[in-house]
Design a protein around this nucleic acid. Structure first.
Lengths: 195, 195
DNA sequence: CTTCGATTTTAACTTAGGTTAAAATTATTG
DNA sequence: CAATAATTTTAACCTAAGTTAAAATCGAAG
């Protein structure tokens, strides 16, 4: 299956985009590969592209003004969108870096082209809504995890939901995602073993 | 200005919904008032309505299974939407209670009617996207505040952004919103005064 | 298989928030 | 305005995460 087919398939299951709907977008999609460590979008850049990950993993992180510390906000992987969504929808400078954590391959579309599709096609506008609703859910789940769960519970949840990522991503990246320091995650892991 | 006019005006500035666009929705909107303490939606209920607050304040809160403690997730006020968005868009049972904190007045629309509008009108589908994007931004700001800020910084931010709510909402509701206990907020306030 | 760098854990100490209950303050109402 | 309820603060003690630096472990590359 070609990369475009993979994308078309994903859009079909998300928003019932059929072959004909997809066709009007086909010319807009570009392919790109990222080496590990390359940036999808950088701090202060307005995010102008919506990406769809054919293969790979990206992280979005924030750099603390004072400490210079990196804090991971999101991970994106295969068959998901990669985008700095707030910057993208508001077209304002991004607060984050979005970086490829492994060699990755994506298809991407420029916001102007996407907006053209939105205006041209009710069906694409519908897709735009579903993408936004999906993004909301992702963010909301994260908000809830901070409000309702302890770091230990967040860690256990992550292990349950994404046991796979522990093979790909170093623990210090994960502790950052959980909102805690490296040594804290070590202590948590130790505590859990003792149960 | 009638309540419907207020709503029409809000939709116009959000998504450029004009008089004609709005007309097709007019029959769907219902009016309702809430006494302080009444519920917009309750735990385990699927949220079937999208509300627009003409006047009043609502809070969405989560009840901790173990401790029975209430944790405030969102406040909604005048000229904003009130809805349990995740439950609404997925039509799954809600994890929250949404309660009126003062006497309130809203207009609301049933999800079936809203979906009718989405299907009927490209413009309304567009509005649906913007509502979702707005909801994303709200949730994302909240995620960021937990990830990047200390409780003290969150408190100071809230004071800066919404000095008004401190007249309406008791501090123990605010501490819950900030993700901390009452005594912690007291300590933070004390600490700040000493600066 | 050894060495260098990256990652993870440990240790020791500090800090801030959690917990519980009581006291103080503020608001409400008969 | 007194009394009652609601809200906020304080106190004392506990717990877990932050911080910093060193040690241990793991992995990749020569």
């Amino acid at each position: 299956m070609s990369d475009l087919d993979i994308l078309a398939h994903a859009l079909h299951s998300l928003a019932n985009i059929d072959e004909e709907d997809f066709k009007i977008s086909a010319a807009y999609w570009q392919k790109r590969t990222y080496k590990k460590g390359e940036y999808y979008n950088e701090y202060r850049n307005v995010c102008k592209y919506l990406g769809f990950i054919i293969d790979g993993v990206f992280r979005t992180y924030y750099v603390d003004d004072n400490t210079g510390e990196e804090k991971n906000v999101f991970f994106f992987s295969k068959n998901q969108v990669v985008v700095s969504f707030k910057s993208f929808i508001t077209q304002t400078p991004c607060n984050y870096f979005t970086q490829s954590m492994v060699d990755s391959r994506i298809l991407y579309i420029h916001i102007d082209d996407l907006n053209r599709l939105y205006q041209q096609s009710h069906k694409w506008e519908h897709l735009g809504r579903l993408i936004a609703e999906l993004a909301f859910n992702v963010s909301m789940n994260r908000t809830e995890s901070f409000l309702f769960q302890t770091p230990e519970q967040r860690y256990l949840q992550l292990v349950a939901d994404h046991p796979d990522i522990f093979n790909t991503i170093p623990l210090y990246q994960i502790s950052s995602y959980l909102g805690i320091q490296g040594p804290s995650l070590s202590r948590i892991r130790k505590r859990i073993i003792g149960k």
